[in-house]
Design a protein around this nucleic acid. Structure first.
Lengths: 225, 225
DNA sequence: TGCTGGGCTATTGAATACAGTTTACGGAGT
DNA sequence: ACTCCGTAAACTGTATTCAATAGCCCAGCA
């Protein structure tokens, strides 16, 4: 048997390419989030297939999943179009995000142990360091990691799944204006950690609500500029 | 031009069957929710295709969407299995549902006009009538319609979409125990309408939270029996 | 008797082929 | 000059075919 006390990482993990549709999905998502495929653009299956070096089949399946996730609009007998974000929808997304994140913070405050808090503090330090340097990418990534960790501490996989989708779309809308909020954001993160540490459910939820509302406001302010 | 003041309903709307994958999706969802396909069961593409009189392709696409929606688990190179609901997951779903419905109630209270309130009252009356008769199906349907209407009044499509998915799954878990809560549920609905009518956001959210928490409790009580 | 190994079958994953629909272009008629 | 109709091209929707992989049974051996 292989189970004879072998450490988990001992096996080379042999790189399985995974289902092709998944890779196509990720590839297209990357192209959309990076604006290489622009909102409103008509996505022709055969072109994408040829461009990616695969058949139409995986492309179709990827497009359908992108459709259910709200990234593309799939008009019958006409094909896929990259979704065009509207002001209203962005606002709705941010509202939902606030809701989900606040609940996650509350649950995290209720369940988190010392280890979890330590994890958050480490991520927070990393984020603050990234703010020091001017690498926008790093900051955004650190921010996502922090929020994901809070969500994990909440221990509700259904909630986490919804938040994951919403967050990714929010980030899509929000990335162009992300550079604005830097240091302030991480101060609020520290406040959140304190509330979680104290097991203060109401406080944690309130802090997170305030936090996400701030990002929402900065989004709208950017719009006017 | 057709736009010469024609009423919307004038055109026969000509029955378009819609994409085949959609129909297959609905058909499979029906089979799952009615327990014709039981949790854990292995779904073989070719069997389903033959049974439905279509090719494997639409079945594949439907299964993938069912997978992303949490109805089936799609194990690589092995196929689709009907998802097996766990206690923990049911609880998490109910938590999220409470969250989404409460927010919807709050937004509905903020935005609803007289027409909207009238709609709710009509649906409520219909529901109460259904409780009078002993048709469980009717009651469940009326309940769903009522909640959907509240969600519509909230005017947040993102929230509505998430709630739609969560609600459907909750109903799947919950249907076997639905007969328990009958009259009480609609009393609470009346309370909700009153709060919405008064534009009391906090009150509406609180009522809805209490309401969904009650259904959650009755779920757990059933478990013990 | 229990275990290992090979080959077989069933089922998914991907590619190709075919049919139906929508859109766009162009010419003829008013 | 403008509109209407017919035709053609392009693309999606569906079916069919081919390839690869996981599971299973049985023979062979310690």
């Amino acid at each position: 048997m292989l189970s004879a006390g072998l450490p988990e990482g001992a096996m080379p993990k042999l790189e399985r390419p995974g289902p092709l549709r998944e890779r196509v999905y990720e590839a297209l998502l990357e192209l959309i989030t990076t604006r290489a495929l622009r909102p409103g653009q008509h996505l022709v299956e055969s072109e994408l297939a040829q461009h990616l070096g695969v058949s139409r089949q995986p492309v179709r399946e990827a497009l359908q999943r992108l459709n259910t996730d709200g990234w593309v609009d799939l008009r019958p007998a006409q094909g896929a179009f990259v979704h065009e974000p509207t002001e209203e929808e962005a606002d709705q997304l941010l509202t939902v995000r606030t809701l989900l994140e606040a609940e996650a913070a509350r649950l995290a405050a209720a369940h988190a142990d010392a280890d979890g808090v330590a994890e958050l503090e480490k991520l927070c330090s990393r984020g603050e360091a990234a703010v020091g340097g001017a690498e926008v990418e790093k900051v955004v990534e650190a921010n996502a990691a922090f929020h994901a960790r809070v969500m994990a501490l909440a221990g509700n996989t259904v909630l986490a799944e919804l938040a994951r989708q919403v967050d990714r779309r929010v980030r899509w809308y929000y990335t162009p204006v992300a550079r604005q909020r830097g240091a302030q954001s991480w101060i609020e993160h520290r406040e959140l950690i304190a509330a979680v540490k104290a097991g203060d459910e109401q406080g944690a939820a309130a802090v997170m609500r305030k936090h996400t509302e701030h990002t929402r406001r900065s989004y709208h302010e950017r719009e006017r500029g």
